[in-house]
């Protein structure tokens, strides 16, 4: 087995223990969507689009006192090493749900009764941490759609690899590591909106990892905010 972390605490992709992979985020990347964002996070390439608030279909799903929030997390067949069958896997169904539940607390759904807000996440290429990258992009897309939100939502995963707590696992670390702890939060309100974990962690491990995840969310938030700023102050290319 490859050595996941060397003696100098450097990880297989050359990062320090608490270092994130490069992240690039851009809003307003699709013409037809009300809001959109594209994120590259490590080797993740993810497109998020938001439609709405719009008329709710089917009508029987309509909510009398708030907007119906819909979300689909979908991986393209070519996004992974093998071909992923195009129909939704159980993993995608679960992620669609937890991504929706991570974003919902931020949105003023009660402002738009009887309507629907649709969030689409398309993973074009996947790497470790695609759910937190998706949440970060989708939240930017919601803001880009002009949907009122109490706060933005950002995510970051922390894990335990070769006995050490590390930030932002890549694919290999995710597969061969011991623990994955994806977290999403509303950074200004300091509220956790997504929390999952798998792999054994002592009380101390968890507390250290959870704290690191919240700190890293803050870092991702600064990037996300910057992306929105840049999206709304277009630079003239020929200048």
């Amino acid at each position: 087995m490859t050595e996941l972390i060397n003696a100098r605490n450097i990880r297989i992709d050359g990062r320090k223990l608490d270092e994130l992979r490069p992240i690039k985020l851009k809003v307003g990347v699709l013409n037809n969507a009300d809001g959109s964002a594209y994120i590259e996070w490590g080797r993740n390439k993810i497109m998020a689009a938001v439609y709405g608030p719009k008329e709710c279909h089917p009508k029987h799903k309509m909510l009398a006192d708030r907007a119906l929030l819909k979300c689909r997390y979908h991986m393209t067949p070519f996004s992974v090493d093998d071909r992923k069958p195009p129909q939704p896997s159980r993993r995608e169904v679960e992620l669609s749900k937890i991504i929706r539940e991570a974003l919902a607390p931020a949105i003023l759904l009660e402002e738009f009764p009887r309507t629907a807000i649709e969030i689409y996440v398309e993973v074009l290429q996947s790497d470790g941490g695609s759910r937190v990258a998706s949440i970060t992009a989708a939240s930017a897309a919601l803001a880009d759609a002009g949907i009122p939100m109490r706060d933005l939502v950002v995510g970051c995963a922390v894990g335990k690899v070769a006995g050490k707590i590390v930030a932002d696992l890549n694919d290999t670390e995710d597969k061969e590591g011991d623990v994955d702890l994806p977290v999403a939060c509303m950074p200004n309100l300091n509220l956790v909106t997504l929390l999952q974990s798998d792999g054994a962690m002592s009380k101390e491990d968890f507390e250290e990892a959870f704290k690191m995840a919240l700190e890293k969310c803050r870092y991702v938030y600064d990037l996300q905010r910057q992306a929105l700023l840049e999206g709304y102050t277009p630079q003239k290319e020929d200048e």
């Binding site: 607390p105 509303m186 956790v192 009380k203």
Partner: peptide, 20 residues
């Protein structure tokens, strides 16, 4: 007594203190 799995659900949130 190790934590092995966690899942937050629902359209609400937790404060970090509540989690701990």
């Amino acid at each position: 007594d190790n934590l092995c799995a966690t899942q937050k659900g629902g359209e609400g949130f937790f404060t970090p203190e509540e989690v701990l």
